[in-house]
Design a binder for these strands. Structure first.
Lengths: 347, 347
DNA sequence: AGTTCAATCGCAATCGGTTGCATAAAGAAA
DNA sequence: TTTCTTTATGCAACCGATTGCGATTGAACT
């Protein structure tokens, strides 16, 4: 029952008594085909229920019209937005999308890259897994001249444009905010320093301390995987500290929230004893009590920009090589978890 | 720089002085090729950096080896798990995946379906958008005999297997639980009754009431889109009711949480004044205070089962036609938001 | 009438695997 | 040695769209 035969350009050609070449050109709006013939072709195609065979076309043109995406996870509002943003641009440009998640593991990332390569994607958009140390698994793309663009969790490589926010500045701002609120002993919970996002936020944190004359203490920098589980462990670590910090800046909201909740369970008052700040503006940041101060940035935009850059390249627009890094804006969102001073009220 | 020419089976054939047909068969582990020749072919292929051209293969075999997925959104732990589950099965079976989100809109769902159709997916896995009323946009697949499987948010059609949980039973159980906790006036917040998941949970709710001798009140059934925004509005609606309910069962956690938070802001005590229950076991259900009673079910499993069913069909295994509906297990997770009785303590 | 030129359109090769059928080689049975 | 099977491999025709190049046609121009 599966084999209703598809109509091809040859069928259309036969019906109209013209050649398949003309049909092909007509369908593609080729200038050498007369207005009238084009109309007849298009009408016949519709009437006969023709649909182009992508594979024949791809085979002949040596292009797949497909773009690959590899992300750590799909289950965040942020990533979902990123992908929605990419989808729109990419579809409008007539490309298709293959999406896969590395689930934060290099091994899976390598497999995914191989799959993408074998599927001959025309270009690749990547946000790196937690523990990826090098991009050897992507070198096959670079060697073949297949455009590779990193976003958010990027890797600096002369051949690869990157789309990011100013993580350094955001880290600096949020730390400065905590200092302004009166914190003098601020802890930072960060993730793998292999990832630019965490490394830069951490640098911003350190520089903000320095610029405000606060010495950096090694004990105040904790690196974990930023999961809820490890955040809870970190909370216990903090509880057992002789002098607890009076402010905590966690590199993502999941970590901030779980840590904060655990501390509260053990009698720590937020923000009075410890002020809190996270990163990402996840929905949970507005649900947890007290609401979490955080940094917001637009996934939709980042996805759209990344996709546009890639498609620009595929169309032979090499401008972006000059601007190797595209930096998008972010916004500090101040909520109760960090408001120690009574003077700040919103009506 | 893009045009390092690819090595083909013809290149391998020439190198080994055999025919391309033999190379093709050797690579596919065809039984008619001798052990020795196979080894030589595989080694040569690796040495020469050969990669199969999917398009040539697809064109000839009239199959794409691609499976399409259409979901409402990607940004939930549940959907992310579902897709991870599908990915594993599907990759292991040698298929590729095209994923797209309808963003809860029929229009986008229709577009996505068209894209999938034009890409000639071998099969399709679908969870319907919020307001989809019919599946005309999928009839093209059914007509062509392309297997179509619905999961979670399904549509009953003789040609389409469905993968679900027992939403009716879950709704019944959670309502019964609220009743056992002493609730006598239970409200249910549900979503579009076009979607089985909400309709069935609602039926379970009604039947549980009836079986416990509690009359159903029309005012106690509220239908909204289950978003945070509308949940907050619903909260205000509840605040203005002359007799407020003493228990609320919301059809998802997002709605339950937002509604609960808004009520608390206005002095409603949870669970004492109003007991709360949600659905899905989202991460927020463990973050909100008090922790939310909810229903858990495994996305990974659902994804894997759906994918396995589809691939079974593609391989000509028609068994599943007998079992048109596959029902997976779920679990009631009781937390503080619904524990009115003091007798329940966990150490 | 003879030429020129632009507008249209067709021929046929090509992209790289796949597969039914024929063939060849090697071993088994007679 | 002859004949019948197996076992391995090659031939060549696909799959359907694309495109360089050449052919045709009719109109415009000398």
């Amino acid at each position: 029952m599966n084999h209703h035969k598809e109509v091809t350009i040859y069928d259309i050609a036969k019906t109209l008594n013209i050649s398949a070449a003309t049909v092909s050109r007509g369908l593609k709006d080729h200038p050498a085909i007369s207005k009238n013939t084009k109309k007849r072709i298009i009408e016949a195609a519709k009437a006969m229920g023709y649909r182009s065979n992508t594979f024949a076309s791809n085979l002949r043109r040596q292009r797949t019209n497909t773009i690959g995406i590899i992300v750590p996870r799909l289950n965040s509002t942020f990533m979902s937005d990123v992908i929605a943003g990419m989808e729109k641009i990419v579809n409008d440009a007539g490309y298709n999308l293959i999406i896969s998640q590395s689930l934060e593991s290099v091994e899976k990332e390598i497999k995914n890259a191989a799959t993408m390569f074998n599927n001959r994607v025309d270009g690749l958009l990547v946000s790196l897994a937690y523990n990826t140390e090098n991009i050897n698994h992507f070198s096959q793309f670079i060697k073949k001249g297949i455009p590779l663009i990193f976003f958010d969790r990027v890797y600096e490589h002369p051949a690869c444009p990157t789309i990011v926010i100013n993580n350094y500045k955001a880290g600096y701002e949020i730390t400065s905010h905590l200092i302004e609120q009166g914190c003098k002993d601020i802890m930072h919970i960060s993730g793998s320093q292999l990832r630019n996002v965490y490394l830069q936020r951490c640098k911003g944190y350190k520089d903000a301390l320095a610029d405000h004359g606060i010495p950096f203490k090694n004990n105040n920098l904790i690196i974990n995987n930023l999961s809820a589980t490890e955040a809870t462990q970190t909370a216990h670590q903090i509880l057992s500290m002789p002098d607890r910090p009076d402010g905590i800046f966690a590199a993502n909201d999941t970590c901030a929230v779980s840590c904060m909740i655990e501390l509260r369970k053990h009698g720590v008052r937020i923000p009075d004893d410890i002020a809190f700040a996270g990163f990402n503006n996840d929905p949970i940041s507005q649900i947890v009590e007290p609401n979490l101060t955080t940094v917001d940035y637009k996934g939709n935009e980042m996805g759209a920009v990344a996709a546009r850059t890639l498609i620009g390249h595929l169309n032979g627009n090499f401008d972006f090589l000059l601007t190797n890094t595209l930096m998008l804006r972010h916004e500090l969102i101040i909520r109760e978890s960090s408001l120690k001073k009574e003077m700040f009220y919103e009506q």
